[in-house]
Amino acid sequence: MTLTVVAWTVAGWLVLVGALGIVRSRDLVHTVVALSVAQSGTYVLLIAAGFQRGATVPILGAGGAGSSPVVDPLVQAMVLTDIVVSATVTALLLALTIQIAKRHGTVDPDELRALRG
């Protein structure tokens, strides 16, 4: 019961607090890192969805040849993909931030005024 509440709450909290980080951000590098925190909330969510009490790692033949149940491997595969996506998107957005620093002379979103209306 406690585990259920904690896991779902932490997952949702991380997504929201990451978004809060973006909203409050005064530095685009910080924005990008906060975005990756928001994404890590989805890791927790997926892992929690596939967890089973007392189950072992999803590797066959380990821990007694299929005698004990394993946790859901599918969510783990999804999180693996998710982590790759997170790393690549972070790299991409950081590259954009570098160019913004060069062209705008600032990485403070409050001072970027090129697009409006």
Binding site: A11, G12, V15, A19, I22, L28, T31, V32, L35, A38, Q39, G41, T42, L45, L46, A49, V75, D82, V89, L92, L93, L96, T97, Q99, I100, R103, H104, L112, A114, L115
Partner: peptide
């Protein structure tokens, strides 16, 4: 071009966050 970079970054952040919400839904 400064505008182009700013537009790209905004696009990236907003769309990624949308994708994460979708992933929450999928989860």
């Amino acid at each position: 071009e400064p505008r182009s970079l700013q537009g790209g970054l905004t696009f990236g952040v907003v769309n990624s966050l949308g994708a994460y919400l979708a992933l929450c839904g999928i989860g």
